[in-house]
């Protein structure tokens, strides 16, 4: 009997004894609980296995002698056994290299996370959803429902983007910006004739104030409001406006604003696209709205003056 085994038995016995005193003899004890019993069984098994394993290796250190085939070379008098690479290791090594190549060329680049990529996907999903919903609704709506839908949509865009300057009720907050309740009416045209129009950035430049006055201005306003038709104002229009806007009011092919679209959403869309530096202040272009939203804002604003 080696001294080692004796120590092993002493340690096992003392630990089991300690476990017995601290768990089984103490108040409550195992309590008949299967989990507690399994835990204790596990603990006992662990103690015994640990002690046996330690004894095995300490014994091996005490008695073992080396065997096997030495390589020819020595390093400062220290030799080394010839150890073949285990087959499993060789396979894993090769697989690791193959996986590494895949990960380097395909795995990482294709699957890498990118915040901007996620953003772009988000935008595409959102835009498609908007498009789909919009087209579905439009396909099922009657004409009045369509118009109503555009006005409602325009109102919500207006409340997010426009009310900050034009006010909740679109009255321009006490003259701080254009009163949109009049925009699209004949009175607004008279205002533009009196004050001029700046900053739309058409090739013909800015419209000066006071190209017509008094009754002429009012006649022109009525003429433009009526879609450039009727007797009233046609003469005054030809004198005061046609030189820039063209005799037909279409803006001479994009040289100046197309007046035939006045009181249609397209007129507002034009302002949203270009921005404006009016008599009151400067309005930025709203290019972040999509085309449908711009049209909706136009529909809403026109609905205010009707």
């Amino acid at each position: 009997m080696n001294k080692l085994y004796l120590w092993g038995i002493i340690i096992i016995a003392s630990m089991l004894g300690f476990t017995y005193i601290s768990v089984i003899r103490s108040k409550g004890g195992l309590n008949g609980d299967i989990i507690n019993i399994l835990t204790i069984v596990g603990a006992v098994a662990l103690v015994i296995i640990t002690v046996l394993v330690v004894i095995k290796y300490v014994r091996q250190m005490q008695t073992d002698t080396a065997d096997g085939e030495l390589v020819d070379q020595t390093w400062d008098g220290i030799g080394e056994y010839r150890n073949e690479l285990p087959f499993g290791w060789a396979i894993s090594f090769l697989l690791t290299i193959i996986w590494g190549m895949w990960y380097f060329t395909v795995g990482y680049p294709v699957n890498a996370y990118s915040q901007i990529g996620e953003y772009n996907e988000d935008v595409v999903v959102h835009n498609n959803k908007f498009e789909k919903d919009f087209n579905e609704k439009m396909a099922n709506f009657s004409e009045t429902q369509k118009a109503e839908y555009m006005i409602n949509m325009g109102e919500s865009v207006y409340l997010a983007e426009c009310k900050i300057c034009h006010g909740l009720t679109a009255d321009g907050i006490d003259g701080k910006s254009t009163d949109l309740n009049e925009w699209g009416s004949a009175k607004a045209i008279v205002d533009v004739i009196n004050n001029g129009s700046k900053g739309l950035g058409y090739p013909l430049g800015e419209m000066p104030a006071g190209t017509a006055s008094g009754a002429d201005a009012l006649d022109i306003a009525i003429y433009v409001k009526n879609g450039l038709s009727g007797e009233t104002g046609s003469e005054a229009f030809a004198v005061s406006c046609a030189s820039c806007h063209g005799a037909d009011g279409k803006g001479m092919g994009g040289m100046s604003p197309d007046l035939t679209t006045y009181d249609m959403p397209a007129f507002t869309v034009d302002v949203l696209n270009r921005g404006k530096k009016g008599a009151i202040g400067e309005m930025p272009a709203f290019n972040r709205l999509n085309d449908k939203q711009k049209e909706a804002v136009g529909a809403y604003i026109n609905s205010l003056s009707e």
Binding site: I164, C165, I173, K176, I280, G281, E282, P284
Partner: peptide, 9 residues
């Protein structure tokens, strides 16, 4: 999206 006169007010 905000302008001089807006900031002033």
């Amino acid at each position: 999206y905000r302008t001089t006169d807006w900031h002033e007010n």
